[in-house]
Design a binder for these strands. Structure first.
Lengths: 337, 337
DNA sequence: CCTTCTTGTGATATCGATGCCAGAAATGGA
DNA sequence: TCCATTTCTGGCATCGATATCACAAGAAGG
């Protein structure tokens, strides 16, 4: 690998001049410029990324941590963020944390070591310990959950979509459509987003003075299999609601399939609304109604916030809250129709 | 950010000694060792990645280039590869090339600049120009397609699964099950893997002396929408085969859905076999029969080959060929049953 | 007691690119 | 023609960690 020194020798100039010419910064005569470019080409020169980032304290890389590499929801975030990063010559280092806290902390450590200039952290359950790590690091980190509840008034940014509101909307819609016996398959309430979503359901039901039937209430772990199990349990107990709100599409698809296996018609026998609007939700017949979680938008916002910190040195904390939208498809056609 | 110099000053020792202590390489007295570790802790020291890789000429990062961020198939590869890389302290930088040649070349350039120590390149249509770039770079690159047909006898490794054989298997199975009027929805034959898959179909049909009905032959672009269009065309032309081999799951799902929309029963009216065995293929009712493409295994092999080159300096080219497997589900239940 | 070997430590050069400054060359204006 | 700019170029220090070497101190052995 050729260096600027070898180019300098080749053209009988100093490394400084070569450096200036190659970066087109500072003065360099046209004649020498051409000689240098030609020599660089000839010697197959490529700048050393390590040397450059040592000197500049810039790597042009962003660590992007996701908890589940198989959830298409995160693909959308990556896509949205990449579009922004691309435009600034930044690259994503994808890190699969498997939702494990120690893996997340390890990546924060990597960030400190200069593996990247900033980080987007998508965490199932970011907690106090984790947050103090971020705070202590004083490095640009954007979180994609709502951490206001943790009472943190600190320097990292948040972009999140209100999952509470999403589930609330779905539930409200079903109620307004005339459904009364409404069930809920939730995600793990040990983690924050699971609790948020559940509260959305409770609030909507309470607002309409509808009783919550415990037999229609199940908790999964956001996986398809857990949705299947939850639905199978209801069927086995002979307690099937008229409509079902499910905390994500994967579980909703699991539930939908079990219903179909039991010859139930959707939405006539049971209406179903999922959440995330992943590609999966239009694979089935009927297609799945769902809550649009605007993952690409989250990714774009997160990347933009990060770029602001990195390129323009913004320091005050910003939080962006997005509002989910209901996407109605055949799995929840209104009763009133 | 503290450096080893500041630690050295703090404990009244030389930077050399500090460096040795922190890396536990070379001599260092127990007493000083403890002092140094304590000071590093106190000053919140983190080693500089850039400085280290400038000196060591090692980044511990791998560039992983995929053409489509929405195709779960590739995430399986990443998953498999990450497992291997993790074990060696390596990280993946994910690069979304969108299947564009110039983006691939840009990433090869980045590899040369030392963005990473090696690269796994998943390309729709790696071609001669691209290959000579890799060859010229003399850097560790593993490709995940079959490039023997390009007559390259060079130093980069390949791991691939024989898509030709996969389609051939699916087709053979249908023939053996008693189907005679068999259709095929293929991928873009402008790219290599599209051609390979198509040849598999042709070969199986020829081997069984079955006529190929042009009305049952459609070409898509591997997207779900293109599968829908292809199927809709056949239905519109009133030319629907008894069984259908589809070049990937996405298109197969599109076809399946259009069939269902036209009240056709699957597999009674038309049997369908897809390819890839992505998560999507078990979402539908009936579940989709498919060809297992062992993406995690491909990823693991690719990562292993790369590690061999990087860590042990292997230089001779290796190619690993995997054999696909048929995964039978309800969308293609045998006629003979 | 002197030599040999093992430990422990520090000075120095290096990886490759860049920023800053000094000085040389070229240009322009009076 | 002379001085003041502007343009151009090279020297040197620097980013932070590490490898090599030299040397000092202590242990072991005759």
């Amino acid at each position: 690998m050729a260096t600027i020194y070898e180019i300098a020798q080749e053209v009988n100039l100093s490394p400084s001049t070569v450096s200036r010419a190659l970066r087109k910064s500072g003065y360099c005569s046209q004649k020498n410029y051409e000689k240098i470019i030609a020599a660089a080409e000839r010697l197959n020169y490529v700048p050393s990324h390590a040397a450059r980032s040592l000197k500049n304290k810039r790597t042009n890389k962003i660590l992007f941590c996701i908890p589940d590499i198989y959830n298409p929801f995160y693909f959308g975030m990556i896509k949205g963020a990449s579009d922004i990063f691309d435009a600034h010559g930044y690259y994503c280092i994808l890190c699969h944390t498997r939702g494990e806290l120690d893996m997340e902390i390890r990546m924060l450590q990597n960030l400190k070591e200069g593996y990247g200039d900033g980080m987007i952290l998508v965490s199932f359950d970011f907690n106090q310990q984790n947050i103090s790590q971020v705070n202590a690091s004083q490095l640009p980190v954007v979180l994609t959950n709502n951490y206001q509840s943790l009472g943190v008034e600190d320097h990292f940014d948040c972009v999140y979509i209100d999952t509470f509101e999403g589930i609330w909307m779905a539930c409200k819609y079903l109620i307004e459509s005339g459904y009364r016996r409404i069930g809920y398959i939730g995600g793990d309430t040990a983690i924050q987003t699971g609790r948020e979503r559940f509260s959305g359901f409770i609030k909507a039901m309470n607002e309409s003075n509808l009783a919550i039937d415990q037999r229609y209430l199940k908790e999964g772990d956001f996986s398809r299999a857990s949705g299947e199990i939850a639905m199978a349990e209801m069927i086995a107990a002979n307690a099937v609601p008229d409509a079902l709100v499910v905390a994500n599409d994967l579980m909703a698809l699991g539930a939908l399939k079990v219903c179909q296996q039991h010859q139930m018609n959707i939405p006539e026998d049971i209406a179903i609304i999922g959440m995330d609007n992943t590609d999966l939700s239009t694979c089935t017949t009927p297609e799945l109604s769902t809550i649009v979680m605007k993952e690409e938008e989250i990714g774009r916002h997160a990347a933009t916030l990060l770029m602001e910190r990195i390129l323009h040195g913004r320091t005050e904390k910003r939080t962006i809250r997005l509002t989910p939208e209901l996407c109605l498809r055949d799995s929840s056609r209104s009763l009133t129709k």
